[in-house]
């Protein structure tokens, strides 16, 4: 019992509670029908937000002002170019993935070069970069819709033991992120930088190197997510990353990561991603129109942050 009470001190518990309440409210209406389908859909769609969100979380942990706005453009470019390279051939799956990762590395490298060399605030640097990346995606796409290789399309849309494959991948990435964050010196470094960059520098932490790796990591995760999303939805679309801009920030913050940086957690991302999907499907189940649904989504985000938040604002 005591352990249970202790858990309530954890910032991520709130997002899980919220997700569970919404899930419960939804199956109440359907009367238990479609529970499995709803849960699987939630896991599938949450997986994409989780992968993007983890990268964004690492960046936000670096401290005030650190945020990566190039995430949607990177997803789109990686998805488009990878599908083009694979050209529906099953043998090209690995080269395609490699290319997506390379694109992520390239975008991350450019992002951090702008931040460091030109001393541009990360928001503006990644925003300008996203314009360029988006243009590159438009240029390569040319309105073509290439289908993913059949093996990959099947893999991303099916389940293993009832769990969607993409959710399993997202789970593996989360474990890796958790280990990086909690068990390695790198994780300690980004938290330290987020709490106070001058102090971290004084303590001899390689601040520039750590920030560089973090921006690379975020861009790579975005490109992997774009690769998977393009295969899942049967082809890349130019606007496929658009909703992940706000989504990636929302899941990080609702998940209990401090916006001021220096304090992050992986489980919260899962709770928040499930929650964000379930809210929309709950409001859909209730048969509400698009307008009401948007308003409710917004009000719920604000209520969650008011309930959970208020520890340290971004000031």
């Amino acid at each position: 019992m005591n352990a249970l009470v202790l858990q309530f001190g954890k910032p991520w518990i709130w997002s899980w509670l919220a997700a569970f309440v919404v899930w419960f409210l939804t199956i109440m209406v359907t009367g238990g029908a479609g529970t499995l389908g709803l849960s699987q859909a939630a896991l599938t769609f949450a997986a994409f937000s989780v992968i993007v969100g983890i990268g964004q979380m690492f960046v936000i942990t670096l401290g005030p002002g650190n945020i990566d706005l190039s995430v949607p453009a990177t997803m789109t470019l990686a998805g488009t170019v990878a599908l083009k390279l694979m050209n529906v051939e099953n043998g090209m799956i690995l080269p395609g993935l490699l290319l997506a990762v390379l694109i992520g590395l390239g975008v991350g490298l450019c992002n951090y070069t702008l931040i460091k060399a030109l001393r541009i605030p990360p928001i503006i640097a990644t925003l300008s970069m996203s314009f360029i990346v988006q243009s590159a995606a438009i240029w390569t796409n040319r309105g073509l819709r290439i289908k993913p290789p059949s093996v990959l399309a099947e893999f991303t849309t099916t389940n293993t033991l009832g769990v969607p494959n993409v959710a399993i991948i997202a789970f593996l990435i989360s474990i890796l992120a958790w280990i990086l964050l909690e068990k390695t010196i790198y994780g300690r470094w980004i938290s330290a930088i987020g709490q106070s960059m001058p102090a971290a520098r004084m303590a001899g932490i390689p601040v520039d190197g750590t920030r560089f790796v973090t921006y690379l990591f975020c861009a790579v995760l975005a490109s992997i997510s774009g690769y998977l999303l393009a295969c899942f939805s049967g082809g890349a679309a130019l606007n496929m990353g658009a909703e992940y801009l706000l989504m990636s920030i929302a899941v990080v913050v609702i998940g209990g990561t401090a916006v001021a940086g220096g304090d992050s957690n992986v489980p919260g991302i899962w709770g928040a991603s499930l929650f964000m999907f379930l809210v929309v499907s709950m409001l859909n189940t209730y048969g509400l129109g698009a307008g009401i649904r948007l308003i409710m989504t917004g009000l719920i985000i604000i209520s969650v942050i008011m309930l959970a938040g208020g520890r340290r604002g971004m000031r």
Partner: peptide, 10 residues
């Protein structure tokens, strides 16, 4: 004492 980014996002 909320983060303005999230409130305005909502």
């Amino acid at each position: 004492d909320l983060p303005s980014i999230v409130v305005t996002l909502g």
